[in-house]
């Protein structure tokens, strides 16, 4: 959907799945992310250093994967939503150039602090289906009745 539109609480049901999104993190993107986070850790851009650490190539920044999942949720909820809570854990490594797929589903619809809220499970997996980054999100959504 268009990110500028809102998703309404009434239009969401438990078990609803988010459309999968496949991305590939390139070394160019990793460079830009290291720059904005002012992160000089060599594991993210120095291939020789990565080899010395036993990796076949440079390692995708864990928080970049988290940011992608967060954006995936924000795009889903649209302009009227608010990301209240977000948790992820970097369980498996992602390497530059690997194709990564983001997936998710609605697990709970309820009221939190007097506002309509939805819990989501989202995750990132690699091309062979290994779970790399499991995450959970709680978002506030606008309601048609109050708007």
């Amino acid at each position: 959907m268009n990110e500028a539109q809102s998703r309404y609480f009434e239009d969401v049901c438990e078990g609803m799945e988010l459309a999968p999104l496949t991305k590939t993190v390139t070394t160019t993107q990793m460079f830009l992310y290291s720059a904005i986070t002012r992160n000089p850790h060599r594991i993210h851009y120095d291939e020789k250093f990565a080899h010395s650490e036993g990796l076949p190539t440079v390692l995708v920044q864990g928080p970049l994967q988290g940011a992608q999942l967060s954006a995936y949720v924000s795009d889903w909820m649209g302009a009227g939503g608010f990301l209240k809570k977000f948790t992820y854990s970097n369980r498996g490594m992602a390497l530059a150039g690997q194709s990564l797929t983001l997936r998710g589903k609605v697990v709970k619809k309820y009221e939190l602090e007097g506002r309509p809220a939805v819990d989501l499970e989202v995750w990132e997996e690699n091309a062979t289906g290994d779970l790399l980054v499991p995450a959970t999100a709680t978002v506030f959504l606008p309601s048609r009745s109050t708007n």
């Binding site: 390497l95 150039g97 062979t128 290994d130």
Partner: peptide, 8 residues
């Protein structure tokens, strides 16, 4: 050489 897609 490292595979394009890491396999198990």
């Amino acid at each position: 050489p490292m595979p394009v897609e890491l396999k198990p």
